[in-house]
């Protein structure tokens, strides 16, 4: 995977001054983007580079924000990282570019209460239909064993 070429490509497409790049094990590079530029970045990757395989989308509740990581792979790993504020967790869907992302987005929607604008079918994927416990992967959620008496 040609990282400098990809950075060049993204720099052209996105109105960001300088891209924040990190290296992670194992053979992974991560680029931080604002959520509004995500769709354009993915489009640029698909149309103008060899990167097309989305391994998965990870969602996590870290540092008071909901962070989404889009893991791509093409000979080496490339992660696009974006953070959403807790009060306003909505981001544009990429299922119009990569139909295979639909299940991953559905899972994040139910586990972290993120709205993917434009997703064709945001139904529950894994949680039961009558689940009322709130998004399980959010910081506030506690497992039944860990709850105090009377909670």
């Amino acid at each position: 995977m040609n990282l400098p070429r990809i950075l060049e490509l993204l720099q052209e497409v996105l109105p960001v001054a300088r891209l924040e790049v990190q290296t992670m094990p194992i053979d992974e590079h991560s680029i931080t983007l604002p959520p509004d530029n995500l769709h354009a970045a993915v489009r640029a990757l698909l149309e103008r580079s060899h990167v097309y395989h989305l391994s998965t989308i990870t969602g996590q509740d870290v540092d008071g924000q909901i962070e989404l990581l889009y893991h791509f792979w093409e000979g080496g790993g490339l992660t696009l990282r974006t953070s959403l504020p807790r009060e306003q967790t909505s981001v544009e869907t990429i299922t119009d570019l990569i139909p295979g992302a639909s299940f991953y987005e559905r899972e994040i929607a139910e586990m972290l209460q993120v709205t993917f604008v434009g997703h064709p079918n945001l139904q529950r994927l894994l949680l039961p239909d009558d689940w009322t416990g709130g998004p399980p992967l959010r910081y506030e959620f506690t497992l039944p064993d860990d709850r105090e008496e009377g909670e």
Binding site: M24, P25, I26, E28, S30, S55, H71, W73, G77, T79
Partner: peptide, 10 residues
Amino acid sequence: RVPPGEVVSR
């Protein structure tokens, strides 16, 4: 204890 960090393992 594992030092802070992230990893993607395939």
